[in-house]
């Protein structure tokens, strides 16, 4: 029996910006650099940058998203955070 370790982003859980990541504000949004994996990630909206910076203040990613975007954009931002989780830009807490 093969067990696969699938990493799944749970938007109802609390998250934070990884301690190994530096954020630099840019005109388009921000650059995120992971010092461990050496990945460079472009965050391409100001709302996403605000969301990532304030993630730690909320009990869930869903709550943090609702604080910065309208409900119609909620799923789009869940997917963006899921992508950041896959890139190890976010970590659980």
């Amino acid at each position: 029996m093969v067990q696969s370790a699938v990493r799944v982003f749970d938007s109802s859980a609390p998250w934070k910006l990884s301690g190994q990541v530096s954020l630099r504000d840019e005109a388009f949004g921000a650059l995120a650099y992971h010092h461990g994996t050496r990945r460079l990630v472009f965050l391409k909206s100001r709302e996403l940058v605000a969301l990532v910076r304030n993630l730690e203040e909320f009990e869930s990613a869903d709550e943090a998203i609702d604080a910065v975007v309208v409900p119609a954009q909620h799923q789009r931002y869940v997917e963006a955070l899921s992508s950041l989780f896959s890139s190890e830009i976010l970590s659980g807490r």
Partner: peptide
């Protein structure tokens, strides 16, 4: 709607 996240 363009991608919000891109990685290199």
């Amino acid at each position: 709607e363009e991608l919000l996240v891109e990685e290199v």
